[in-house]
Nucleic acid binder design. Structure first.
Length: 807
DNA sequence: GAGTTTGAAACT
DNA sequence: CAGTTTCAAACTC
């Protein structure tokens, strides 16, 4: 048979014959058919020539594309990976994810050789849709484009850098419902196949976010990665496993109880993206959303990086979308954390778990906020460095990089609150070191029953122990900060020896000061209103501070820096505003319209108000601005009669103003109709936050709203569900001076921690509190508690930042 | 990595 | 509710 094509160049013949599909189509047909070999031979030869031409074209294109691609270095992983990140927006897809085995060990292919195969189309964007640097047609795009060609498989093989795995994967019917059971997957028996399905509703709101910047695309879509990942890199095996694990973990961490559906049921996720409570994510959304997003972002970095490293190529023959579809509204915090956790711990992870975990994927929530993704991208590099270079991470910890917990339970079968996974309402993940674990989908009934028993004793046993308040800022380096006082332990600790300065203390661990509920002895985890919350001042050793700095990313009250050099850095600022009435949305709209570049959208209930755009410069290099409100803002405030409260130091920041005071300051910005007085009763509370939209956004604005404006510059508001709590807390804030605790002498009521709440409450019940979230763009100069009044960086904050940045 | 310390959870 | 035990995380070496 091959003799008929002697004239075909060896390479081309290889291309043809090496492909099972091609072989079947071409050679087999030839061999079995034609009584007129000459004609058939000619025809086939012509076909071969045609193929050859196409191959050459493809090769040329690929070379061109390759040259245009930046090197796959961690430092610039962000932009690159975005194209690699598959997005699952469509109906359930089956994925095969054979582990990288095609490349011989020891082969030294550059990272771009790594192949990430996704049947999803997210990774392959239309070339025309691309814009900006590095947006020349990437290999994945090329691959996608080729997919439309009848000879794609052949052509793909012509590309030395295209993994044969990619082609194989490509050949697999992307629509196979279950690759594990499919014949296609059987063909890949030599490989480890991971089948991941996306909930049918995973594609909801796919079009909600029309387009994103390249970097953001990466971060926004990566979390949605649910497809199999092929890694043909040299160390691709492990990388692939990590990625696969990533997906699995996302499933395994779904708490059946809170997810509202059984992990095994395959029921359709709610789509709300809400997850079970945990210390980190159970905080009020107003605060938690921002913090968690950040946390997830950083935690997710490692995973992203590895993903990126592991995958340069992504082929999706089905992809025909010109913009990256996303599942924009899910909070996805837990999932993200789990992902990160996996990424971090993959090196020591257990062997791939059984298909049970994979089955859980059927019910996974695969939603992620665009914000989350954006944050991911911004922190990608930092997280990478963090996860890869920090020797401290070697230390055994129950908290992985992303904050996802993993346990080491030996006797409790992970069915007691001792188990952090169980306590967090999550199934144990594969990287848990637990023994005889029953906290998994296989024992769902047991888990549920056990939980019920525990809850019967303590209804809030699985609820977050931390009451988190909304107190986030951007620090001098653009990192997000939250004063530790922004939250508190609901129950309080009972430390006797650690002085609440070690992670034995749940308050300390949660980065909140001990409160009235604590029964600790010799507590030093307190606030001095005149001082920053600095662990070192309380005797915490340097390493601990450093560790804590690392771990602060695990908590809502975190203060971590971004890489100032990272242009993709997205800051989060949250400014509570109080409007006299919803009519002042127009004021805000005008305010916003006075600045440009940022598109704002306000909405009251179902009423949308496009308020134009605004832009506040943020100068990372000018710490002095840290305690200054953007002049523009002042101007705008004055112009628009958006007067801060009379007691607000907003416009009169004094040198003695602590960072937290500034927190207060900004927290107390009230938008009133020029009088400076805050109306009571009817004043809806608004908060303008540079946080990314989360589920709340989805719930409030809905898909259409989000579609209506640039996702990169998004202003939104959300119902402030925590308002009652805030009010309640504010009423108790005066009780922060611990009376019963031996530490009462040390404990100083941090009125600032609640001042913003009081301020809010000053206007009376906030029945219609709203949160306005501004896009994650530099709107304000560095503010927040991490910068003291003298313009210098807050000690604790800087420590944390340094700790992060140094990594 | 093993052993110790610690404090929450569980138990009585 | 208090005291004790169990447990696993945090920590130290």
């Amino acid at each position: 048979m091959s003799s008929k094509f002697r004239s075909v160049p060896d390479q081309l013949w290889f291309l043809i014959s090496d492909s099972p599909e091609t072989s079947n189509v071409n050679t087999t047909a030839i061999a079995t058919s034609s009584p007129e070999p000459d004609i058939n031979e000619l025809v086939e030869f012509l076909r071969v020539l045609q193929i050859a031409l196409i191959c050459l074209r493809v090769l040329s294109c690929y070379i061109s594309c390759k040259d245009s691609l930046p090197p796959m270095m961690p430092g610039n992983a962000t932009n690159e990976a975005q194209d690699q990140l598959p997005v699952f927006n469509s109906p359930p897809l089956a994925f095969t994810s054979p582990y990288a085995t095609s490349l011989p060990n020891g082969s030294q292919h550059p990272r771009p050789n790594s192949t990430e195969i996704s049947l999803n189309d997210g990774m392959c964007r239309d070339k025309n849709a691309a814009g900006g640097p590095g947006e020349s047609e990437t290999v994945p795009q090329l691959c996608r484009r080729l997919s439309t060609d009848a000879y794609t498989d052949k052509y793909t093989r012509t590309q030395p850098r295209l993994s044969s795995e990619c082609v194989d994967q490509y050949l697999v019917d992307p629509f196979a419902v279950d690759s594990v059971n499919s014949a296609d997957s059987a063909n890949l028996s030599s490989k480890q196949i991971k089948n991941i399905q996306v909930p049918e509703d995973s594609g909801e709101n796919v079009e909600a976010i029309p387009h994103y910047k390249p970097v953001e695309n990466l971060t926004m879509h990566y979390p949605e990665l649910t497809g199999a990942v092929l890694d043909t890199d040299l160390d691709g095996t492990s990388r692939t496993r990590e990625l696969v694990t990533f997906h699995k973990s996302k499933t395994t961490l779904i708490p059946p109880r809170y997810s509202g559906y059984s992990p095994l049921s395959g029921s359709k996720p709610s789509g709300s993206g809400l997850h079970l409570p945990s210390i980190v994510n159970d905080v009020p959304r107003a605060a938690g959303a921002t913090a968690n997003v950040k946390l997830e972002a950083e935690a997710y970095i490692g995973g992203l990086h590895r993903m990126k490293s592991a995958s340069l190529l992504s082929c999706n023959p089905l992809e025909n979308m010109k913009s990256l579809p996303v599942l924009p509204y899910a909070v996805g915090t837990d999932s993200v954390r789990s992902k990160l956790s996996i990424a971090e711990s993959s090196s020591s992870s257990k062997p791939p778990q059984s298909t049970e975990s994979l089955n859980m994927l059927n019910s996974m929530e695969r939603q992620e906020t665009p914000i989350d993704k954006r944050k991911f991208s911004s922190d990608l590099v930092d997280g990478l460095e963090y996860s890869q270079s920090s020797p401290k991470k070697k230390r055994k910890t129950t908290l992985s990089l992303n904050g996802a917990k993993h346990c080491n339970c030996k006797k409790t079968k992970c069915l007691k609150l001792y188990c952090q996974c169980f306590s967090a309402g999550k199934y144990c993940a594969e990287f848990c070191a637990c023994q005889e674990c029953h906290n998994k989908a296989d024992y769902e009934d047991t888990v549920i029953k056990t939980r019920q028993v525990i809850e019967s004793r303590n209804p809030i046993a699985f609820a977050s122990k931390i009451e988190q308040h909304n107190n986030q800022f951007i620090n001098s380096e653009g990192g997000t900060c939250a004063t530790p006082s922004s939250g508190r332990h609901k129950i309080g600790c009972n430390c006797k020896k650690s002085m609440c300065l070690k992670k034995y203390c749940e308050c300390f661990q949660a980065n909140v000061p001990c409160s009235t509920g604590c029964r600790c002895d010799g507590c030093k985890n307190v606030y001095d209103k005149n001082e920053e919350y600095d662990a070192t001042k309380h005797g915490v050793d340097k390493e601990m501070v450093s560790d804590r700095a690392d771990e602060r990313t695990f908590y809502p009250g975190s203060c971590h820096s971004h890489n100032p050099d990272d242009s993709t850095n997205h800051r989060m600022v949250e400014l509570p505003f109080q409007l006299v009435s919803s009519g002042y949305l127009q004021e805000l709209a005008i305010l916003a319209s006075n600045v440009d570049s940022t598109h704002m959208l306000l909405q009251t209930n179902n009423e949308e108000l496009n308020v134009g755009s605004y832009n506040w410069p943020l100068d990372d290099n000018n710490p002095g601005m840290a305690h200054q409100f953007p002049p523009r803002w002042d101007t705008l405030v004055n112009q628009r009669h958006l007067t801060p409260l009379s007691d607000s130091p907003l416009m009169s920041m004094t040198p003695s103003t602590s960072s937290r005071t500034r927190d207060l300051t900004y927290s107390q910005i009230h938008l009133t109709p020029g009088t400076g007085n805050v109306s009571s009763g009817v004043s809806p509370q608004w908060r303008i936050s540079l946080i990314t939209p989360t589920t709340e956004l989805n719930e409030i604005l809905g898909t259409e709203s989000l579609q209506s404006f640039n996702p990169d510059y998004r202003l939104y508001h959300t119902l402030e569900d925590d308002t009652p709590k805030m009010l309640k807390d504010s009423t108790t804030s005066t009780e922060n001076v611990k009376v019963s605790s031996p530490n009462q002498n040390h404990r100083v009521s941090p009125p600032e921690s609640h001042m913003h709440e009081l301020g809010s409450s000053s206007s009376g019940p906030l029945r219609s509190a709203r949160q306005i979230s501004l896009p994650s763009v530099p709107l304000f100069p560095p503010l927040g508690p991490c910068i003291d009044s003298k313009g210098s960086t807050d000690n604790s904050a800087s420590k944390f930042e340094n700790g992060n940045s140094s990594k």
